[in-house]
Amino acid sequence: MSILTRRAVVGAGLAGAGLLLPGCDRLDQSPAFRETLRLGERVSMGAQRLVSDRTALAREFDGGDISPVFRSNGTRVPGGTDYAALMADKFANWRLRVDGMVARPLSLSLAQLGAMPVRSQTTRHDCVEGWSAIGRWTGTPLKLVLDATGVRNTARYLVFHCADLYGASPYYESIDMIDALHPQTILAWALNGRMLPVENGAPLRLRVERQLGYKHAKYLMRIEAVASLAGVYGGKGGYWEDSNDYEWYAGI
């Protein structure tokens, strides 16, 4: 009566599942397919920007919500003699360069940054891996630094150059001007009321609260305003984007 026996159906189902996996792995090898999947990033970014006010704030927590231990991730101590020398005199000789498409390139010491208006925020740090830690960050709003340096209106991205190396590749990240001008985007030099520990990015790290952890560049040395990310290192806008194909937009 029935053409399909139960055994045939179960067998076909198992065979289908068995084909699915190698099939997906093969699809992943295809650059065209990867580019198709990457549409998800653009659609998500567009949709999130659509439903979100440019200045919508990330949740700020009470002191009681602070993680007992703020997990350090990625580089814990940058290698090399240059960083060791900076660390030896407690970053007194460290300077943040701000240049690229700006009217007045700057070189700022920690004291100069600290003399600018300060913002503190108790926010959640979300790693792309899935964990979260809450800490109280204190620092200089990035917008104030950008106003001081006079970013040209043809600049579309800020590139954050870092002191830490992965093999021979320096860590770097980039954000667009919407996130750069966001009120919670700060250059943080303190965590939980103390100067930023080395393992969390001393002397200065970026906080860009509406994106995942890998965007929050640590060990900042230089901020460069650019019109395009194409010519910067691997061209995808960040170390993990270049090396491991992570998405540039990390709002989800």
Binding site: L37, R38, G40, E41
Partner: peptide
């Protein structure tokens, strides 16, 4: 294990690409 995941070999970035595209 690899037989239960996409992709079968460890890759968080590839899995996120699949997951966040198919989510739509």
């Amino acid at each position: 294990p690899g037989w239960a995941t996409i992709p079968s070999g460890y890759s968080l970035s590839a899995a996120r690409r699949w997951h966040l595209f198919f989510a739509w």
